[in-house]
Amino acid sequence: MIGVVNNQIDKNTLELLGKANQMAVKIQTQVCLFIIGSKELKVDHVKDYADLTVLMLSENFGRFSLYPFLINLEKAILKYRPSILLSPATTFGRTIMPALAARLRTGLTADCTDLDVDDKGNLLQTRPAIGGNVMATIITPNHRPQMATVRPRSFSVQPEKREGRVRIEEITELEDSCELIKIEKREPSAQIDQAQIVVSVGKGLRRKENTQIAEKLAQLVSGAVGATRSVVDAKWFSHDHQVGLSGKTVKPKVYIAAGISGAVQHIAGMQTSEIVIAINKDRYAPIFKVADIGLVADAYSTLEQIVKILEDESDA
């Protein structure tokens, strides 16, 4: 059985279920979704993506706190015994999974960008290694479950109808030594991993003021602005905007890389975009190797021209 763990039903859950389904077909096993969270969660629209959905809901599970979640999940894992267990590499997944792995004395691979199974049922867990310069594939040959957290946007949502039974587990309540005393909602920060069009900028924009043209273009096409680490380090943008190994992975329909050299660590976060457009004045810049369309030109003035054409047309 392949298990997917999350504390909410979101796009990350659907992406993992899509991948779990593919792998389940290959090794002829079942997919089980473990949802642990608030009583309000509704599973109707996802329950048919898994053969079995196991619900652990409590009014105390509105916000994640490690031990109450851990104790209940561990119980469910030991009951249903999945051989593979996946969770998104979010703050939730990256906290609960190592805790589970420690309890279950098994292996865990962090932040995978690709998964597969071989015919022996080994989970092939692939992630960037050595500062993103190479990819490494990791297996957990003798311990079960084989556990991995997966970087959001690594897979596309591929719904597939399954039988869709639902089980509700009884919750063990527990005195918690962690107490939530305040919560302040955060503006949904730069949603670069949600946008259809991402306009990313690098050092080739030369000055912070010049990046306004990218914001303008993003606004015109209802997209979002991404950035390289160099320009985040230079404080042109907050870290929320960073695309790449130590930032976010994006998978938009259109990715524009303006004034970006194309370092491996940057490419790691955008290479699965559908159409890649690169603007760089150096025709030998590595970014052109991963682009579909390359404009060998000044980044600022090229973006300016594109904006002008789009504006003129919408005025007309």
Binding site: R105, T106, G107, L108, T109, L124, A129, V134, M135, A136, T137, I138, I139, T140, P141, N142, H143, V264, I267, Q271, V276, A278, R283, F288, K289, V290, A291, D292, I293, G294, L295, V296, A297, T302
Partner: peptide
């Protein structure tokens, strides 16, 4: 529990249509 079984370089390349100079 885990074993690295393979380390490899990624070569995800695309066929880039380059525009420059008067084709820009």
């Amino acid at each position: 529990p885990t074993r690295v079984v393979k380390v490899y370089n990624t070569k995800l390349s695309r066929n880039c249509q380059l525009y420059m100079g008067k084709d820009l």
